[in-house]
Design a protein around this nucleic acid. Structure first.
Length: 484
RNA sequence: GCCCCCAUCGUCUAGAGGCCUAGGACACCGGCUUUUCACGCCGGCGACGCGGGUUCGAUUCCCGCUGGGGGCACCA
């Protein structure tokens, strides 16, 4: 049975590149009827951020990417955090050492840097010079006593390595490009290469998907597996996701973090759908897909080799469509989540209000649009500004005409039945009796009660506000805005 | 510097020798709709990087160039 995994290191938030790797791994597992697991690779003590673990877990769940095994859900091959598996790595390293497949080394980083510099000066490639004879256990002990750093390096068999990748095809790394790399860091932590290979083997991972940046380093893993007698998994390296300037997305680009999209009012299904299309597509002209549909259509052979740029305009379009397609209940829940992450005047806990907001805000692109158009309705009746441009455009430019209308509308509203139908009837009759278009009537009211020219349909706007607050706002407008 | 990977509209891509007058989506431009914004609808602009081969025929195959990206850590 196939098993895939996502194995992030907790050094920051989950960004879209990682999310796509996780997604494809999930799709591959589901498509083949296998399992998907989540492992945390926290072997970098320096860059480790404990909060990042929970953030990554939350972000994946929000996206709808669920794992069958791993952190937070458990499983037979745990623990699923590398920092809790140190003993396991130690045992394997002992065996490697005893079997003459690895050896100790004592170089300081300064010494290594100097060697690299010299190699560069001499225009040759740096490859770690294997000592002869190899240091013994006694040498290691002595080095430790002298306070020198002690690491373990892999004794490279130095042969050409060949493996097949489902995306990039056959990859060959000549022996001349390899050297004796570090597998245990000073301090006893395993390097990524060692821990990753051991864990994949022990956890039964049979298929590895990861970013293309590892393609040229996979030879290390092939060799390590061979040395420890582990089975070779299948590979599918993913092309990179670049920003619009064509640079590799980095964790420093906070705006490509999954959390940032959640906070900005995106729907996870839109993000997932969009990300899936970065480097993959089901063929034909199909773009909109649910997770289940993607599972059905997925195949690593259809992943492109070329890097893709992350175009947030297209993502925005996907989000607009996803919101338009989502059910009212779904939107109420998502809006609640969005509001819980943002500080606005909109009452996040009032479901009836949120439902009305969802109904009144058809056509929005993100939930931020709800805030932009409706937050003012929840502020104090004297707690909003009048946009001078708006006031000028719809209230004071046409002499006193618009103001006169506003006065009359106020009277009309004071006697109106405050329901959708009631308001519509009142406005329609008013327009007819005055011989005015709806624009001439609705806009002055809108500016009066919101201070701007933008809000939901006028009936919804007034309904959310209620009669008393509407009248109070019109009065304030008449009093304040126009005299300025 | 060395090694590796990649190359179709601005962007994501379809295309696996004739189906291509190169298709779709986003963006952009124009128009329509409209009580504002947004949404929606209709139309338009727009690409096979260059040079050699192979072939009756290349976007599709091969080579070179150019361009872009990645790797060369006691980071993952």
């Amino acid at each position: 049975m196939i098993k895939t995994r996502f194995a992030p290191s907790p050094t920051g938030y989950l960004h879209v590149g990682g999310a796509r790797t996780a997604l494809f791994s999930l799709l591959q597992a589901r498509k083949q009827g296998g399992k998907f697991l989540l492992r945390i690779e926290d072997t970098d003590v320096e860059r480790h951020q404990e909060e990042a673990v929970q953030r990554i877990v939350d972000a994946l769940r929000w996206l709808g990417i669920e794992w069958d095994e791993g952190v937070d859900v458990g499983g037979e091959a745990g623990p699923y955090r590398q920092s809790q598996r140190l003993e396991i790595y130690r045992e394997h390293v002992e065996k490697l050492l005893a079997g003459g497949k690895a050896y100790y080394a004592f170089d300081t980083v300064e010494e290594l840097d100097a060697m690299r510099k010299q190699a560069e000066a001499e225009k040759r490639n740096f490859r770690y010079p294997r000592p002869s004879p190899l240091p013994s256990e006694q040498d290691a002990q002595q080095a430790r006593e002298q306070g020198r750093p002690v690491v373990v390096r892999f004794l490279n068999p130095m042969r050409d390595v060949v493996f097949d990748d489902d995306v990039f095809g056959r990859i060959v790394t000549p022996a001349a490009e390899q050297d004796d790399f570090v597998i245990v860091k000073h301090g006893g932590y395993p390097t990524y290469h060692l821990a990753n290979v051991i864990d994949d083997a022990l956890m039964g991972v049979t298929y590895i998907m990861r970013g293309q940046e590892f393609l040229g380093q996979t030879w290390r893993h092939v060799l390590l597996r061979e040395a420890m007698d582990f089975a070779e998994p299948g590979y599918g390296h993913l092309p990179l996701i670049l920003d619009m300037q064509g640079r590799k997305l980095s964790k420093r680009d906070g705006d490509v973090e999954v959390d940032a999209f959640r906070r900005s009012g995106y729907l996870p299904e839109a993000l997932v759908n969009f990300i899936a299309l970065l480097g993959w597509n089901p063929g034909e002209d199909r773009e909109k897909m649910t997770l289940d549909e993607m599972v059905e259509l997925f195949s690593p052979q259809r992943i492109n080799k070329a890097n893709a740029k992350f175009d947030r305009q297209k993502l925005l379009a996907f989000n607009t469509d996803a919101i338009a397609a989502a059910s009212e209940d779904r939107l109420v829940a998502a809006l609640t989540d969005f509001l819980s992450l943002n500080d606005t005047a909109i009452p996040a806990g009032d479901e009836a209000v949120l439902r009305h907001l969802v109904q009144a805000n058809k056509g929005i692109r993100t939930f931020e649009d709800v805030v932009a158009k409706c937050e003012v309705l929840f502020k104090a009746d004297d707690g909003y500004e009048f946009d001078p441009e708006a006031v000028k455009k719809v209230l004071t430019r046409n002499e006193k005409a618009s103001l006169a209308v506003l006065h009359q509308v106020r009277t009309m509203l004071a006697n109106a039945d405050w329901t959708g139908e009631g308001l519509e009837k009142a406005f329609t009759e008013f327009c007819e009796s005055k011989g005015l278009g709806m624009g001439k009537v609705a806009q002055p009211v809108r500016v009066a009660v919101t201070g701007t020219t933008v809000s939901p349909a006028i009936y919804d706007t007034l309904l959310i506000l209620g009669k008393d607050r509407t009248l109070a706002r019109i009065d304030r407008c008449l009093r304040v805005a126009v005299t300025d």
